[in-house]
């Protein structure tokens, strides 16, 4: 678990936004999740997953929307996953059995809970959907770290196709810098739009410009919930994360 301070800040922010009932529910739910043995410490299940009743914290994970309100559900679910120290197998199951909102929360959690590329299949699954909220979650920090060059370029293009703002793309400037193949794809797409008499998305020019950028210092602002409020994370410079993600980026990029 690499970024728990971010989850701590998120919890403080969420608690201040919830009413008394929802705050009390969240505290109880997080305590329940934290009391679970970590998956690596839990005894091997004696029954198959389909027969076993879901752990209580997973029920709380499902209920977060109606308890905290849909506008806070993503954050509440992310905190529950963190508190339960959900491993890749658990995250995969919750994604596969999840509503769109639950899947989004799992995608957001990957960067906090999965250190390597082993959950990349979930990101790739989300990128095959046409639900823009899932696509936006899939191009967050975990996707930035682990998607290979080809898949990442198609993810960026898909954002342009489906109207997802490229603000959602983590480490955009770092991954786009010097990417001639991405520049070619963007140019071809712009020509296709122009030939059809359709407008070229404004974000396209923005990404195209980034592919030409050469300065090391340039860092694209990110909009994911964990870094949007830097004043609540004094110990963590929000501009550090894209650089950190880039340093761990897939070798195909370098």
């Amino acid at each position: 678990m690499t970024r728990t301070p971010a989850l701590g800040a998120l919890r403080a922010r969420l608690e201040s936004a919830l009413d008394d009932d929802a705050r009390a529910w969240l505290a109880q739910a997080l305590a329940t999740a934290a009391a679970q043995p970590a998956p690596s410490e839990a005894p091997a299940p004696q029954v198959t997953a389909s027969q076993a009743p879901a752990p209580t914290w997973e029920l709380r994970f499902a209920q977060a929307g109606r308890r905290c309100g849909p506008e806070h559900a993503d954050d509440a679910r992310l905190l529950l996953l963190g508190a339960a120290r959900a491993d890749t197998a658990t995250l995969t199951r919750l994604y596969e059995q999840g509503t769109a909102a639950e899947r989004r929360a799992v995608l957001h959690a990957l960067t906090h809970l999965v250190p390597g590329p082993e959950a990349l299949g979930l990101t790739e699954d989300a990128l095959r959907t046409n639900d823009t909220s899932l696509v936006a979650a899939a191009v967050g920090p975990y996707g930035a770290e682990h998607l290979d060059a080809h898949a990442w370029r198609h993810a960026v293009l898909k954002c342009l196709f489906t109207g997802v703002s490229v603000d959602a793309v983590a480490a955009l400037a770092d991954r786009a810098r010097g990417d001639g193949e991405l520049a070619r794809m963007l140019g071809d797409y712009a020509r296709e739009r122009t030939a059809a008499g359709r407008p070229v998305p404004g974000d396209l020019q923005r990404v195209l410009a980034l592919t030409e950028a050469r300065t090391e210092a340039r860092t694209e602002a990110r909009t994911d919930a964990l870094t949007e409020s830097p004043t609540e994370q004094p110990a963590e410079d929000p501009t550090e994360q894209p650089a950190e993600a880039a340093s761990a980026a897939s070798p195909q990029e370098s």
Partner: peptide
């Protein structure tokens, strides 16, 4: 972002 009915795009 996607109202007005133009958002069920084919995603490429």
């Amino acid at each position: 972002a996607t109202h007005e009915g133009n958002s069920i795009l084919r995603g490429g």
